[in-house]
Design a protein around this nucleic acid. Structure first.
Lengths: 365, 365
DNA sequence: TTGAAAGCGCTAACAT
DNA sequence: ATGTTAGCGCTTTCAA
């Protein structure tokens, strides 16, 4: 039917207006414009024309004309990682409720890519942007991200970070440190006295904080954490696997291993199993990844409300606010499960009076 | 510094041009336009001005002017489901390689939402769109999706489906049926003779095809699949859990259960475990979800190259082509693991001469 | 209420 | 090589 299609063959509002015998302005008001400024009869005529032509408004053009978009951005480290896909699910739920489309960028754990994507989202004039994932100790990268985020906000968008409080931007601060500290407390409470930590990448703050918190918790309980009981590795299943093997190779015998996230813990358990050690060494993780809930043995971990974090982040940034950055703390909850069955003392020990091992350094208290 | 910011406070190309003392056109050519039409000296001046002003081109405006976008769409059923997040990871990798941003929509397994999102992506003038996830037997929904996809393509975009071949659109056809058939063959080869199927939602074609294929495989092996050994349920972990319980409640004793996807299989295993039956009933799944590779017992399944599927889908649709829809078959590979240890016959049976159970219908051969 | 017209920010002829 | 000037498709004054 249509003879002179515009570029891309798409029907334009002008086509609709012509067919309905009204002006462009009227057509606009009838279809995309706000409420009752158009006579019902005319409105119906325009809508019919639009339907006939299978018209779909050009969102880009609307964005240019209106000066705003219906797009929000989400930057994650790796969409395949359940940690991030849960956050994404939460953010997308809120986006849907607000009629927003979400552009996701998976930065592959490269800080530069992350910055690049923020820049891309600025070009897209995204209304808001959620940046999920740990910062690193790379001061330079942090500064550049800060600059880019700042530019984004100055150009009219709003940004929110999920992770550490390191930039003057709205942030959902994940209580990694205190979560790991609590975990250590509970674990020592279970009777464990010798620990290893599969600590994740060296510069990754989430990993660093969890390690620090765990060490702190142990210290408070008067338990030592030897330097070479800490093995760094990738923040992945394979990273956990390798780190566990390395820890074992170091000849340290530990009762319990803390992997700084669940996927590493799963890798660790797999490694232990191949050595027939799964009953000998207890393992704890962090995050409480949904898909891993049925793993055997059930994983002791620190539960993070991941989906909710995603929701809250986007809600926060969509809500109007004063301009001063807001920081909201997200605390996890320790969940004790079978992977840390606790120590059965050879001689029933006095409850509540766990004494530090001889080898441990004096408690700081 | 800047006094008269445009709407949204963003710097425009005109600001840059003015500061560099050149025309709008020159600024455009220097920054966003194709190569060498601008004197190096001038170009440098413009670039410096852009840097000073922290200019970021307005992608929306570029899109309007150019008549095309750098956005591709991805519609999935549920981004939190590892099946889809793997596909998303693949698609995003290709997008990155092509300098494209990807807008993801999670339809929550509601066909209407799916259609709505395709419409939204048409409005965004996405260059291409990948629709991942099973179709249903809802003829009407299928027709409406077809209409919407058609409109999308007529408006200049390209679409590709992942799943069933049901629409005259580029499609990655997942060989669910033959995969399940092969699985049945291997399972009967292991000696199993009585099966149950946790079949997923009734109208979901992926589930339907897998059930059909499995039944077909059994039939070929001369093994019966009784009607009430098939239990439908949600396509999720909990769905598998519930279906397993239901199957048991029906009082059928089966040697092996086929859950039509891995997450259901995990739910089934969990259910069996609570009843102390995990050693009694074998379980097989479908998909070979990465995160589930360390589950105990290791899951027998049909491996689908999920990430690769996501990559291939986007690549396919990005590649120029004749206009006639292309269909590419994706076949899975059976992976036998511990969850189906095989049957140890009480009396060593003659190998290779599995005889149909008395209760089974005659093989169609 | 409706229409004419001036943008929105950018690109791409078309001149020069 | 650079500038002028139409657009791109839409929204939104401003008049009528």
């Amino acid at each position: 039917m249509r003879t002179m299609g515009a570029k891309r063959g798409a029907v334009t509002l002008e086509d609709v207006a012509r067919r309905a015998g009204v002006s462009l302005a009227t057509a606009s008001r009838a279809i995309n414009g706000s409420a009752r400024k158009v006579r019902p009869e005319i409105r119906e005529r325009v809508e019919q024309a639009a339907r006939d032509l299978d018209y779909a408004a050009n969102a880009q053009a609307q964005a240019v004309a209106r000066g705003r978009t219906d797009v929000v951005g989400l930057v994650v480290q790796d969409i395949e990682d359940p940690y991030f896909s849960s956050i994404a699910a939460g953010a997308m739920r809120v986006a849907e409720a607000n009629g927003l489309m979400v552009c996701i960028a998976s930065a592959g754990r490269r800080p530069d890519k992350e910055i690049e994507y923020v820049a891309a989202l600025r070009r897209m004039r995204a209304a808001a942007i959620v940046i999920a994932g740990s910062r690193t100790d790379d001061r330079d990268a942090l500064a550049r991200l800060g600059t880019e985020v700042d530019a984004f906000e100055r150009s009219g968008g709003r940004a929110v970070l999920i992770g550490q409080r390191r930039l003057p931007v709205d942030t959902l601060v994940v209580a990694n440190r205190s979560g790991a500290r609590d975990l250590a407390t509970r674990l020592t409470g279970l009777g464990y006295r010798s620990f290893g930590v599969l600590a994740g990448p060296r510069g990754l703050l989430t990993a660093v904080d969890r390690l620090a918190g765990f060490a702190e918790g142990l210290r408070k309980a008067g338990v030592a954490l030897s330097r070479d009981a800490v093995v760094h590795g990738e923040f992945t299943r394979d990273g956990g696997h390798a780190a566990m093997l390395e820890l074992l190779a170091r000849g340290r015998s530990v009762e319990c291993v803390f992997a700084v996230n669940d996927v590493m813990a799963v890798g660790a358990i797999a490694a232990l199993r191949t050595l027939g050690l799964e009953r000998t060494v207890a393992v704890a993780g962090f995050d409480d990844i949904t898909t891993l809930r049925d793993v055997i043995p059930a994983l002791t971990t620190v539960r993070l409300p991941l989906v909710e974090i995603g929701e809250t982040a986007l809600e926060m940034v969509l809500r109007e606010h004063s301009g001063r950055p807001r920081y909201q703390r997200i605390v996890g909850e320790v969940v004790l499960r079978e992977s840390t069955p606790g120590v059965r003392p050879a001689h029933p020990a006095p409850v509540g009076a766990a004494e530090p091992l001889p080898t441990g350094p004096a408690s700081s208290t």
